[in-house]
Design a protein around this nucleic acid. Structure first.
Lengths: 226, 226
DNA sequence: TGTTGTGAACTACTTCACAGCA
DNA sequence: TGCTGTGAAGTAGTTCACAACA
């Protein structure tokens, strides 16, 4: 290997402000690259990668340009290098322990979802307030009482949590996560959480996804601009 | 009631092209309004609604302005009227039957999720290729063999589908949905589907949500611009 | 030749600010 | 007065287009 050009891999130019949408595309690039590498492909150009995901070549290059220079003119990008660089960017070159709060239907299914491990996330502990659930072991994870959350978070140095409780209990559970020291929350409840500014969150609202389709399929007139 | 101002409720000015992000905020407005109405609130101003969801008042008014005039100057919006109007916009004033393909862990959990019904979606049929699953009844839905998909879709006039199969089978399953006449797909597999242009899709990638948090929490330097 | 990296141009989205209405 | 609806102004994101390089 000649020169690994991202001088400080994963380091971001200190004045950079990266649009959210760019970060989400980085995740898509990573996912696709992992597939390509598994299929034995060594290098890829911005236009190939873009075509696979439905983006323009310029978009791919601009997005990567937020974080450094990773390509070889005339050649493209080396899949292995780019995968490593993008995991550095996303922070997933090391494993992330995650807590889950709420072990209902959906929570139990998520405990068994393999995709998290593939991207280096591991659900280390699960919590519920229901005494009937506490003590059970689901998908290899023992369910603990919610009161134990702060101790576990502290002991294991956990920074991320998944919130999988019913809507009416979501804010209170979020407050507990915040109090325990969690810094980022994936919220599966269909409510907008009120959080202190140092805590990040992303929401997954399953019904909203269907509503978007309902709109798209219904409205013959209005084209959805992507 | 004096005049119901959205002249043709739900009808969209024929030259309108509505940005995707606007439609997703409409869903959020609707969700919040449903909560407010359930709590007994009769009217709401754009700034109140915006504050609850973290948007500006102008944003709320502009978004609604894509679809018509719904407000009363000096007063705000009537919750009940606005809920009705937004359901007209999204197409959810009538119930949507939905098919599910793939009844694994996650699929079974989604079959039991109450949030779909609340927004007027009903999973009418579920399909799997695994003979061990076919014939079971899960959450009140009988699992049928995937080969029966086209007949059921046609018979019940179903237009939307949820794809909940492993990544390596997602494209093939999507092709089956398309062949059966489905027009919109919620894709839970972590792959980008190739679909004909008349078929809409939205993707839910659970690992990507965690990656976004990992990035946000990791990068002290780069602020995520919302 | 093929492909990157990147300013410049363009497009899309958001916020401002205010006329008009109740 | 309070609040909507909406052009105008401003900001953010995307695409263009080309110099530089392998």
């Amino acid at each position: 290997m000649t020169d690994f050009r991202p001088q400080q891999p994963g380091e971001i130019p200190s004045d950079a402000t990266v649009p959210k949408v760019v970060v989400s595309r980085i995740s898509l690039y990573l996912r696709e690259l992992q597939r390509l590498e598994a299929a034995g492909q060594q290098t890829i150009s911005s236009s190939q990668l873009g075509t696979l995901l439905g983006f323009s070549d310029a978009q791919v290059r601009k997005d990567l340009g937020f974080f450094g220079q990773f390509g070889y003119p005339g050649v493209g990008y080396r899949c292995d290098e780019l995968i490593h660089a993008m995991r550095d960017i996303l922070g997933t070159n090391h494993a992330w322990p995650v807590v889950m709060v709420g072990v209902g239907n959906l929570g139990q299914a998520l405990l068994g979802y393999r995709g998290f491990g593939r991207q280096n996330f591991a659900i280390e502990a699960a919590f519920d307030a229901d005494p009937a659930k506490v003590g059970q072991t689901i998908q290899g994870v023992r369910v603990q009482h919610i009161d134990e959350l702060p101790a576990v978070v502290k002991e294991k140095g956990i920074r991320l949590g998944m919130l999988v409780v019913p809507a009416q209990r979501a804010q209170e559970a979020a407050d507990r996560l915040v109090a325990a020291g969690i810094e980022g929350i994936v919220n599966f409840a269909p409510v907008t959480l009120t959080l202190p500014p140092h805590v990040q969150s992303v929401s997954v609202d399953l019904a909203i996804e269907l509503e978007q389709l309902s709109f798209a399929v219904t409205s013959k007139l209005a084209k959805i601009v992507p």
